[in-house]
Design a protein around this nucleic acid. Sequence first.
DNA 1: TTGATAGTACGGATAGAATCGTACAATTGT
DNA 2: ACAATTGTACGATTCTATCCGTACTATCAA
Lengths: 103, 103
Amino acid sequence: MMNDHHPTREDLRLPDVLLALGNPIRLAAVKQIAIGECICSDFVTDVSKSTMTHHWRVLREAGVIQQRPEGRVIYMSLRRDDLEARFPGLLSAIFNADQAASA
Amino acid sequence: MMNDHHPTREDLRLPDVLLALGNPIRLAAVKQIAIGECICSDFVTDVSKSTMTHHWRVLREAGVIQQRPEGRVIYMSLRRDDLEARFPGLLSAIFNADQAASA
DNA sequence: TTGATAGTACGGATAGAATCGTACAATTGT
DNA sequence: ACAATTGTACGATTCTATCCGTACTATCAA
């Protein structure tokens, strides 16, 4: 039932955000979400559906993404404004990072 | 013996750096190192000496800090240039983050 | 109402991280 | 040479993450 607790902007914590993004699968997912709103099945991964559910939860609970159920899918978007308000420049630094060997 | 393998600049990986900084103890330590070179005993923490050794290793192996033994102490410094080269703006975004509830 | 689709929830397995205490190594001062 | 200082290394423990399969819920379409 998506147990949906999205933290408020004030409750975002930098270590949690960094930890959430410090996983290659989640980082890749967030980069894709950053391009535009997605649903779960848009992601091609090596891991199972239930494992992805786990990763979505970590991202949601860290306040990185927002999940918006609609019909039988869940739209996911980046919480850009909240992250920018609390941690200015962080997202762009992460998205602009040299990809040479960082994936 | 400090087993010192510092990764080269090219080998730095974003997820590893984020993971290393995604721990409150390490994040606090790095913020302090950012102010100026430190030795281990400069840090006041709740954890034991051997636990800190572990955290120094994580930071060193992620390429966040540099350890330079001198006499019987080890000077630690931030690998600012390398991090900036690979992940421009990341450090400043992290250090400038709103501290309201992020520790 | 039946079946397909999209995803969560739960329980369990495995792997990895954090922590500690103790033992050790290297350097320095006496 | 001895003791003190500064830190690492190792092994054990505990806690947390990752991952899977299965079972379930909710929605939509026929």
